[in-house]
């Protein structure tokens, strides 16, 4: 045996009361960051300057922001977006389950639906629904009969166009969510004697939500914007309202700005809602839920106050 080991343990704790000496070093200078920052600010200033020189009557924007026509358009945009999204969600779940079913007929039909409605532009789909009267002048389902032009209102055309298109996208999102749930969950549920449908409703779908919600939120935000295409079917949405005012007041760009502001407000509000929804479905998968923005503000304020009182003492 050769070594004479020094018996003092390597990681001996420093004696109490003497704090370890902090490292004093000159930090790395990030010159690149400064250059990039200056360039970006300069470009922004140039852009702002360009707009200030443009022929824009800025006063019109706040003036028309709460115009009754605009507010009515805003309401219709929300209505058609929510209604289409609801239809899309229901269709999405139905077609996702059909697509995953063991029955070859239902799974092929679901495949066909997704193929058609995801593979054609939503604008074209809207026009097809709106023009349905050209090939079916009369709507007749036995117990109900009417002129197609009366049945296919702008609202219905917009709802079918947006909703069926959305359903195809949602079906793929829901399918991915369902498939993300561990096989063991289904087995455990079956072993307890739960039926196929109960297993889906009580065990698989709630867990797939965590995977489904984030892309669905994106879909909804997309929907709020895509809904502007319903101008094509004469639906009086936000963009249509802006265009109506623009055509009489000749403040075309100003009205587009008004519409853009409202679209930004809508998407921002729903982004916040999405945050809370995701938080809700994170239950059980995270040990501690992340704080809500409001809780963050509260704890920050509290710690600030205690710091101050501590400093004063």
């Amino acid at each position: 045996m050769t070594d004479k080991i020094d018996k003092v343990p390597a990681g001996a704790p420093a004696p109490a009361g003497v704090p370890p000496e902090a490292i004093k070093a000159i930090p790395v200078r990030h010159y690149g960051r400064w250059v990039a920052g200056v360039v970006v600010v300069a470009l922004l200033v140039l852009l702002g300057y360009a707009f200030s020189q443009g022929n824009v009557r800025w006063a019109t924007v706040p003036e028309k922001l709460f115009d009754p026509t605009i507010l009515s358009g805003l309401w219709h945009t929300i209505l058609i977006s929510v209604a289409s999204m609801a239809l899309g969600l229901v269709l999405g779940v139905v077609f996702a389950v059909m697509r995953l079913s063991k029955n070859p007929v239902t799974s092929s039909v679901a495949w066909l639906y997704i193929w058609i409605f995801r593979g054609t532009p939503v604008y074209v789909q809207l026009l097809i629904w709106f023009s349905l009267a050209l090939i079916f002048p009369v709507f007749n389902i036995g117990f109900y009969k009417d002129e197609m032009t009366d049945v296919m209102t702008p609202f219905l055309a917009a709802l079918l166009g947006l909703g069926l298109n959305e359903g195809a996208y949602m079906a793929e999102i829901v399918r991915a969510g369902i498939q993300s749930v561990d096989e063991g969950q289904t087995e455990a549920s079956h072993a307890l004697g739960m039926s196929q449908s109960k297993t889906m409703r009580r065990v698989v779908l709630p867990q797939s939500m965590r995977v489904i919600i984030p892309p669905t939120g994106n879909e909804f935000i997309n929907m709020l914007k895509t809904s502007s295409l319903v101008v094509a079917v004469q639906y009086p949405d936000l963009l249509r309202a802006a265009q109506d005012i623009a055509s009489t007041s000749f403040a075309v760009m100003e009205m587009f700005f008004v519409a853009s502001i409202w679209y930004l407000v809508l998407t921002s509000v729903f982004s916040v809602g999405q945050y809370y929804l995701e938080r809700h479905y994170a239950r059980g998968s995270l040990r501690a839920l992340p704080p809500t923005p409001w809780q963050k503000i509260k704890t920050n304020l509290l710690s600030l106050r205690s710091d101050q009182s501590g400093g004063a003492a």
């Binding site: 063991g184 969950q185 087995e187 239950r283 059980g284």
Partner: peptide, 18 residues
């Protein structure tokens, strides 16, 4: 209906996480 009367415990627990 048959499975109701047979309890099963899995290696990976398979509790419902939600």
């Amino acid at each position: 209906l048959q499975r109701r009367d047979i309890g099963m415990v899995f290696q990976r627990f398979n509790l419902f996480p939600h």
